[in-house]
Design a protein around this nucleic acid. Sequence first.
DNA 1: TCCTTACGCTACGACCCGTAGCGTAACTGT
DNA 2: ACAGTTACGCTACGGGTCGTAGCGTAAGGA
Lengths: 213, 213
Amino acid sequence: MSDSDPRTSRTGRPRSTEADAAILEATRASLVDLGWSKLTMGDVATRAGVAKTTLYRRWAGKNELVVDAVAVLFDELELPDRGSLAADVQGVVLQFAALLERPETRTALMAVVAESTRDESLRMRIRDSIVERQKRLVLEGRRRAQQRGELPVETDAVVANRTADLIFDVIAGAVVHRLLVSAEPVDTDWARQFTLLLLSGLGPGAMERRPGS
Amino acid sequence: MSDSDPRTSRTGRPRSTEADAAILEATRASLVDLGWSKLTMGDVATRAGVAKTTLYRRWAGKNELVVDAVAVLFDELELPDRGSLAADVQGVVLQFAALLERPETRTALMAVVAESTRDESLRMRIRDSIVERQKRLVLEGRRRAQQRGELPVETDAVVANRTADLIFDVIAGAVVHRLLVSAEPVDTDWARQFTLLLLSGLGPGAMERRPGS
DNA sequence: TCCTTACGCTACGACCCGTAGCGTAACTGT
DNA sequence: ACAGTTACGCTACGGGTCGTAGCGTAAGGA
């Protein structure tokens, strides 16, 4: 976020929160219409009904602005209890795919990641506002599976954390790659096949001990 | 590639192949130094010792140029027989990771993918010059595993193809996500853990029937 | 009321874009 | 050898975006 700690500045005119919202909304809209490369600060300012200088007072540039504009979209991901680990995984895969189908998300995510390869602070910004926030889904899903007895209870906290990171990268990575690189759809069939692979692996006999549905 | 079919134009001065190579090389260099957003056609031309107009005679713009400049990097991936499916997977994961560690690759791949979300022809260009070409690794690895008896021989060709696509997305996606989004290293430990997950899954008892290290 | 900060607006030099026009270079067929 | 054809390097151009500075005004706090 554009650091707006109320304790830092108590005096003077406060920053307009409506402007903040309008700018982020305008950024997403502009992203849909123009795409990343043709998105300009001037255009966003016009759409938001705000002066261009106001944008630069809050964000250093295009990168930071877009990260903030898109980060909130990921918060809508949820993990309703579907009764089994397989169903939960499949559900979150389809949800994540639906999120990435939205033009502002797919465009912005990849573009910002691309830019972050040369910008350490931007990379951390992405990590904090997007990646770390969504690991909650993995942790929640695993917790439930353990309660159901579908997964062994991890004793070593370090190993447990590493495993959660791994699973997160595998799920998110596979969906992103399928959708944005391979350019193929993520439908129910694919989600089911992927879930099966994730739970059972492709080792010998994997296809025979298939978990429920 | 910049369509250079020798049959189309037999007469006149031929296009300089040295210039082609110099331009692609200069593009990669500029990508390393400046990153995607600050890379300009003029800069590439200067580095290549070529007129800017020459670039536009061969490529429509930045996107197409960068795709061609980076595509060849992926061809260096190989799959030497390491004796087991697990070892083969682990090997290709590390190789792919090493490729993505190179600044020109990581920057370019993500940037071009981002741009492709709004450009159908660019998406196809990526699919053909990068994605499809590298599926050979999956097919080769599975063929070997089947010969060793590690995997069942697929009878249905359609299913077999779908599975190959899935595996490709999972492997490539996980590595890309780990490196570029989560911004964590892909080392031997991670590769081993990932391989174990891919082969055995995370279902009940998966960790006990681990395949040969 | 004074102080402080945010806002909208305008203007600016710097840079990059993509194209046009020109003269020259390289290769081909007769 | 010569004309025909295509690629090249170079220069110049209008159009657009960048990021900043300066100004007067608006909105809160002491």
